[in-house]
C-alpha cells in the first residue's frame, strides 16, 4: 500500500467536518451560526460534527457574549491545521 495513504484522516472523510475545517483554515474564527449558514446544515448536525472535531483536538472554541446573547466561536487548532494540510497533501498525491 502506498505510504501517503496513512495521511488521509478519518476525521475528514465526512463532508461536513471537511467543510468546517476548510472554513476554519481561512478564517481566524467563525461563530456557530455563520458555520451553519455556510454549510447549510441543521443545528444538531453541526453541533455533533463540531464535537467530534473538538474530541480529536482539531477545533477549539471560545464563549463570549454578543449583545447579551451567548456566542460560541470556533477556531482550528495547530494540530487540526497540520492534519488538514496532510490530508490535502495525501489527496493530491492520490489523484496524481
Amino acid at each position: 500500500m502506498k505510504e501517503f495513504l496513512k495521511d488521509l484522516d478519518k476525521a475528514f472523510e465526512n463532508r461536513i467536518r471537511l467543510g468546517i475545517m476548510s472554513a476554519l483554515m481561512v478564517n481566524d474564527q467563525l461563530d456557530f451560526n455563520t458555520l451553519k449558514d455556510l454549510l447549510g446544515v441543521t443545528d444538531g448536525n453541526l453541533a455533533s460534527h463540531l464535537k467530534s472535531l473538538e474530541k480529536s483536538e482539531y477545533v477549539s472554541f471560545s464563549k463570549s457574549f454578543l449583545e447579551r446573547k451567548p456566542n460560541t466561536s470556533y477556531a482550528a487548532t495547530a494540530k487540526g491545521k497540520m492534519a488538514f494540510r496532510k490530508h490535502i497533501g495525501a489527496i493530491e498525491k492520490l489523484l496524481l
Binding site: L18, G19, S22, A23, M25, L38, I88, I91, E92, L95
Partner: peptide, 9 residues
C-alpha cells in the same frame, strides 16, 4: 472533496 474545499474557502 477538493472542489468543495475550494468553494467553502
Amino acid at each position: 472533496d477538493l472542489s468543495e474545499i475550494r468553494k467553502i474557502m
